[in-house]
């Protein structure tokens, strides 16, 4: 035991760094018994703007990395989560009913990451195609990442849902800005520490703790964001506003309660590029 207990400062995760909010604000986070847990950074619209800039600048490198490489990186994330399993269990348990439930959630999250890691190099053959055309051409349809995705994670199963959102978006080469559950952000902060130490290039995953009602409208209207994942938006009026705002710049919008199963969720953040290539030369 150290002579002085060192308390962690829960900060944002932007561009691979852990900055405090530009606004300097924090808010208090409590557990299920209303016991104080931590002061957590309250992100602002300017943090969101910085996160978009970071995500955009990382996108070209991440999306052009080989699928094999992206798979290795995601597997590495799972490895490091496994090493910090106890910490995650303790944190999830601050809200879960029993410790057993917390353990199940953490293990599921790790398994899910490994599953995502396996998908990176299988996407193009399962979602792409070689199309028959009338003419001397090869015609391919190839899945490509859509770009920068802004996501709002739900409060239920905060760790598992966060891993599902982040993994399904980034495995195909997208960059993500995610707003975790406002009430239960601590697992997201720990997850950020895992990403920072597992070869995920800075900016590919950005985590903004705080209120989605405050931050999300800026991301929805941002012209440099290509898609929205509204999984965690519980307020219907807010969801509608975000969707309308996103429509101004033709964003892909995953609606709340979409509950897309497995591969469908991954496919939602893909675009299809079709290439014609002369044949028989």
């Amino acid at each position: 035991m150290a002579e002085l207990e060192i308390k962690r400062t829960a900060k944002l995760f932007i561009g691979g760094a852990f900055p405090r909010s530009e606004s300097g604000r924090t808010y208090e986070v409590f557990d299920k018994n209303k016991q104080f847990l931590a002061n957590v950074t309250l992100g602002s619209k300017k943090d969101a703007r910085d996160a978009v800039t970071a995500a955009r600048s990382s996108f070209s490198k991440w999306s052009q990395a080989t699928a094999y490489n992206r798979g290795q990186v995601l597997y590495r994330v799972a490895e490091i989560m496994q090493g910090r399993r106890e910490q995650f269990v303790t944190e999830v348990n601050t809200w879960s009913k029993t410790k057993k439930q917390a353990e199940i959630e953490v293990d599921k999250a790790i398994d899910l990451l490994v599953w995502f890691a396996g998908w990176t190099d299988k996407l193009s053959m399962t979602t792409g195609s070689n199309n028959p055309v009338a003419g001397p051409f090869f015609n391919f349809s190839i899945p490509e990442p859509t770009g920068v995705v802004a996501a709002i994670a739900p409060s239920q199963n905060p760790l598992l849902s966060l891993v599902e959102i982040i993994g399904s978006i980034v495995l195909s080469g997208n960059a993500v800005i995610v707003i975790p559950s406002e009430k239960q952000p601590l697992t997201a902060v720990s997850l950020a520490e895992v990403f920072a130490t597992s070869d995920v290039p800075g900016g590919v995953i950005n985590i903004l703790t705080g209120s989605y009602k405050e931050i999300a409208p800026w991301l929805a209207s941002h012209e440099d964001v290509n898609a929205l994942d509204l999984s965690g938006v519980s307020d219907k009026a807010v969801a509608l506003d975000l969707e309308k705002s996103g429509a101004q710049t033709l964003k892909r919008v995953l609606r709340p309660n979409a509950n897309l199963p497995g591969l469908e969720r991954i496919k939602f953040f893909l675009e299809t590029k079709t290439v014609w290539h002369p044949r028989g030369l």
Partner: peptide, 9 residues
């Protein structure tokens, strides 16, 4: 406009 712009625009 009140919305952040991007390099595509």
């Amino acid at each position: 406009t009140g919305a952040y712009s991007g390099p595509d625009y």
